[in-house]
Write a protein that binds this DNA or RNA. Sequence first.
DNA 1: ACAAAAGTGTTGGACTTACACCCATGG
DNA 2: CCATGGGTGTAAGTCCAACACTTTTGT
Lengths: 220, 220
Amino acid sequence: MYVATDCIIFGFDEGKLKLLVFNRQVEPLKGEWSLIGSFVRLDEDLDVACERVLRETTGLENVFMQQLKCYGKKDRDPGYRCISVAHYALIRIDEYDKELVRQHGASWYEINEVPQLILDHNQMVLDALKQLKYNARYRPIGFELLPEKFTIPQLQCLYEAIYQRELDSRNFRKKVTSLRVLEKLDEKDKSGSKRGAFLYRFDHENYQKLVESGYDFEIA
Amino acid sequence: MYVATDCIIFGFDEGKLKLLVFNRQVEPLKGEWSLIGSFVRLDEDLDVACERVLRETTGLENVFMQQLKCYGKKDRDPGYRCISVAHYALIRIDEYDKELVRQHGASWYEINEVPQLILDHNQMVLDALKQLKYNARYRPIGFELLPEKFTIPQLQCLYEAIYQRELDSRNFRKKVTSLRVLEKLDEKDKSGSKRGAFLYRFDHENYQKLVESGYDFEIA
DNA sequence: ACAAAAGTGTTGGACTTACACCCATGG
DNA sequence: CCATGGGTGTAAGTCCAACACTTTTGT
């Protein structure tokens, strides 16, 4: 049986949660929209395979990535029996290799304007989004989608995009700062307003300590 | 590549959460403890394969079963390259086919006394238990492990076994009855005490309605 | 009559939500 | 000077956790 992996790649840009979809360049179904994927090689760990796929298409390494689900309907791929283990990845939209992405015929789509994809890939996207919403409540994975330095309004905007609802800025700020995993910098980002908003950095060290102590990261 | 499925089968008996483990009857590793599994047939849906495994070993159908994770380390099975999609199942310990289980050389082990299992099966059990704890908070899956009629003290005992901590009986009773998915019967179960405790039945219909309306089932 | 489990309410504290105004700056 | 987004505190309500005694009945 063939074993493949497909990647649901999320990014965050212009205040919107987006999905990277690919123009399929091989037959069958050449020219259709698709997630990016690959067969898992015989001598390759499953998770290594999807890291490889991500690296080959975006140039990124050490990306947040998580196994979503294994799709195994017998007729999911009309060509041959193939199961696919879907993973979703959160990438920083300012870091990926734009040339590489262009070569693969990929484009970003807003999460609720994703076009028709091949096979069961639309279902994978729906499942991944559900998972992302779910996980975002208990681990601060939202940070994975932002540049290294970000402002609190940006972070809030991201969570609003994930949850697809508005959050109260006072309550949001209170909560994220109370988590004590944000390091406030002396710089401001003035791209969003005249006044400028302070930049923060994610304090990985403190985060790690808190995780180990069993801390609960529910946000919003 | 070979594709297998393995089943983590949970049951609840004598106030303890238990796992059904099998004595492996084929080489290699014959005689070792193992989860039960099977290769996925070429013309068989993945989820159908694990339903088949469960039916073949316990005689049960229509069991609560959920995909856990796909295990795909390249050397997880020293014999040949094989990925395994683990599923966990919750069964009622009074319903399974004891003769069938005996034929497969299976025994129940308390969840924190599980012996050494082959390959990565111990890891699968740990992951399944974590998932069970997690899911038990948001869907009333605990009911799957009890007989059709059960008492509230039994239900509490089950949740205590899953969470591995004690719960307050007043708060627990308050919460589960407030969910409005329990139907109180006129019978009592006197096996647990002189006084006897009222039996309840899970109201699947009302549960379905509540799920559809987006209700949140957090318990304990 | 007593042991053993079933059943029942209340209160204090923690957390969540809702809500409105001033601040800093660039144009 | 004004338009724009950034930043701040408080009060009400809801939810959760802690807690102890009475009931029933078989032995």
